[in-house]
Simulated scan of single mutants.
Amino acid sequence: MLPELIDLKTFRKALCQAPGPDASALKGAADRNGQLTKPPGALGRLEDLAIWYAGWRADARPQISRPQVIVFAGNHGVTAQGVSAFPPEVTTQMVMNFEHGGAAINQLAMAAGARMDVHALDLDQPTADFTKEPALSEDGLLKALRAGWNAVDPSADLLVVGEMGIGNTTPAAAIACALFGGDAADWTGRGTGVDNVGLANKTRVVAEGVALYADAKDGLEILRCLGGREIAAMAGAIAAARILRIPVILDGFICSAAAACLADVAEGALDHAIAGHQSAEGAHGTLLQKLGKKPLLDLGLRLGEGSGGALAINILKSAVACHSGMTTFAEAGVSDA
């Protein structure tokens, strides 16, 4: 069960003490995989995915029947710096589109047989402009983490989290730069499609923010100073899933930045997560390398919303279906020698 998220200390403690995968299920799944009616390794990475999933679900022959997709939405004060090609009101308009079933993520979640939930987080109150003050107060960060923490359905057997927030590739780039170093330009991309002048301005904003909070002590403090409500909510949901042993498929650059904050707080915090895809946002590949995550897909997506993660659900479902549904050599009466 999830503990009540009383304060940030509780969050850190719960993440650091989260359980790992079930050793017995891992062994049972590996043994079963070695007996299935196929040459060893013939299903490639699908075999590893199925065994990984089995360990987290504590079931050597698991199924995926209750995937959940959650989209969090938030607005950012840093958009006042002109970092996005779209105005902040688009966030609210897109939330309505999600709720009416008209967005890409609605179709992808439906195609994957996933429940989809949408959480709009104080859209009428953008975070602070992080070039002037921290994006969130400690209470604001806790509230956003709690929104994600409590949004996870404990009965779900797979989780994808996505986001909607005009301007949010800017805080994501700042978070990645603060966590992993390098120049702001290494982490800053075109997001919704800013031109060269806009990119230079966006890079300046990222550099100013990272310099302002250079003394932030860990990933949670970096998230508070440079992030946003929807980014923090994704981190809260990913952490809750870790404690509940619900495997997670990470989405794109912004989701990966949220996850990276957790990895900075606790070793192994992302062991229950795989990367659904590598997006077209330039620094996403580098960020995935830093996290040690190899993407399942690379289709040039740059939409956000959880779209790449949702698209990857059916890959994981297929891996688990083969693992659990195939017969063994003994069952099929086929010689394995």
Rank of each mutant, 00 (worst) to 15 (best):
G189H: 04
V320G: 00
T127F: 05
A18F: 10
F72K: 00
T169Y: 02
E47C: 09
D186R: 12
T188G: 08
Q68S: 04
G140S: 12
E208P: 08
G209V: 01
Y53W: 08
E89A: 14
L244D: 06
Q17G: 13
F329M: 02
G77Y: 06
P126F: 03
D153W: 07
G77T: 10
V334E: 10
A54E: 01
A128W: 07
R242P: 09
L288N: 00
A50N: 06
A147W: 03
D157S: 06
A232F: 02
H323L: 09
G113I: 11
M1H: 12
A184P: 04
G182V: 09
V69M: 00
D336M: 13
A174K: 08
L311G: 08
A235S: 10
D157C: 02
L288P: 00
I51K: 11
T131P: 13
D264P: 01
S335D: 15
A257M: 02
I64Y: 09
L136C: 06
L145F: 13
G148A: 00
S24A: 15
L262E: 03
K38G: 05
E305P: 06
G325W: 11
R45C: 10
A29H: 03
T37D: 05
A332P: 10
L288F: 06
R204Q: 14
D7G: 13
Q68N: 08
N168W: 04
T192K: 08
H119Q: 15
G209F: 00
A42R: 14
P126T: 11
G82I: 11
V71L: 08
A216F: 10
Y213A: 12
A173R: 00
P247R: 07
D264S: 08
V90A: 15
A263F: 04
